[in-house]
Amino acid sequence: MAKVLYSVTMSVDGFIAGPGGDMQWMRPYLGPNPEVDALIPRIGSLLVGRRSHDGDDPHKGETGEGEAFGGGWSGPMYVVTHRVPDAPEPGVTYVNDFARALAAAKESAGDRYVNVIGANVAKQCIEAGELDEVLLLFAPVMLGDGTRLFDQAGGRTVRLERKSVTETALATSLWFDVV
């Protein structure tokens, strides 16, 4: 059965995108990462928010632009949106209902991961009790503003249990189970 994983690169001050959705801040930290390289073949499908899907690409102007993990992964992608395009792109399924999108992504993933991309979709997974794991790749930078990893008006505690810590020259990875 598929597990739902929120994997994301984050600044040390808690932002996953800079002001206006800027993802170019991430470029210096996209180097080799054995943990990410080992994760990619374990991903069966992607569950992506529309803003993340349509937004800035840290691989802009490079090979792999517009592709998941810079072209390192391919497979079924489910985009959660209230604005389904008239002419969808190949390989992408646009779904206007979160629960249906998650169910389809889990079915497609089989016994591999559904990898979540986007803070709002990750928040919906948490609210539905469907998030199983979190992989945080901490980049040694502070952005000061942007999109937070998890933002809940009034606050909310989500308990995590650390599974592993991996350090590379460019980032530190922390892998958690959601308790």
Score class of each variant (00 low, 15 high):
V36D: 14
K123F: 04
D111P: 09
V48C: 07
D86W: 00
E35D: 13
A38Q: 08
G21S: 01
S45D: 07
I126A: 00
W25C: 14
A68Q: 00
P85A: 02
G118Q: 12
V114H: 04
T81H: 13
A101F: 07
D54W: 07
E107N: 13
N33C: 15
D132Q: 11
A68V: 00
A122I: 12
I40N: 13
V84Q: 13
L131I: 09
P28L: 05
W73S: 02
M26K: 15
P90W: 03
G21K: 02
G70H: 04
L30M: 15
M23S: 06
P76H: 15
T81K: 12
A139T: 08
L131C: 06
W73V: 02
D86S: 04
Y78F: 15
V79Q: 14
N33Q: 14
S52G: 10
D86H: 04
R83P: 02
L47R: 08
A103R: 11
D86P: 01
V92F: 09
G118M: 12
M23K: 09
E127V: 02
G20V: 06
G72L: 10
G49H: 03
V134Y: 06
E89R: 15
E133Y: 11
F98N: 04
Y94W: 12
P140A: 02
L136V: 13
W25Y: 13
G66W: 00
A128V: 01
V116T: 03
W25A: 13
G64K: 00
A119I: 04
C125W: 03
L136W: 03
E107W: 10
V79I: 14
G129V: 09
P32H: 11
A101G: 13
E130V: 00
E65D: 03
G61N: 05
V141Y: 06
L30P: 12
A103L: 07
S74A: 11
I43F: 11
I117E: 04
P58S: 03
P58R: 02
T93K: 07
R27Y: 11
Y78C: 08
G20R: 01
D97F: 08
V92Y: 09
Y113G: 02
L46R: 09
S108Y: 06
I40D: 12
D97I: 06
D37T: 13
D97L: 03
P88W: 06
T93V: 09
R42Q: 14
E130K: 01
S74L: 07
Y29S: 15
G66A: 00
L102P: 10
T93H: 07
L135V: 07
E127Q: 03
M23W: 05
R50I: 10
V48K: 03
Y78W: 11
L143K: 05
D132R: 08
I43N: 11
A119V: 04
G49W: 05
G55D: 08
V84K: 15
N33R: 15
S45I: 11
L135F: 13
D86G: 08
Y78M: 10
V114S: 03
A139P: 05
R50H: 08
L131P: 07
A103P: 10
M77F: 10
R51A: 08
G31C: 13
I117L: 14
Y94L: 09
R100D: 14
G118R: 11
Q124W: 08
R27W: 12
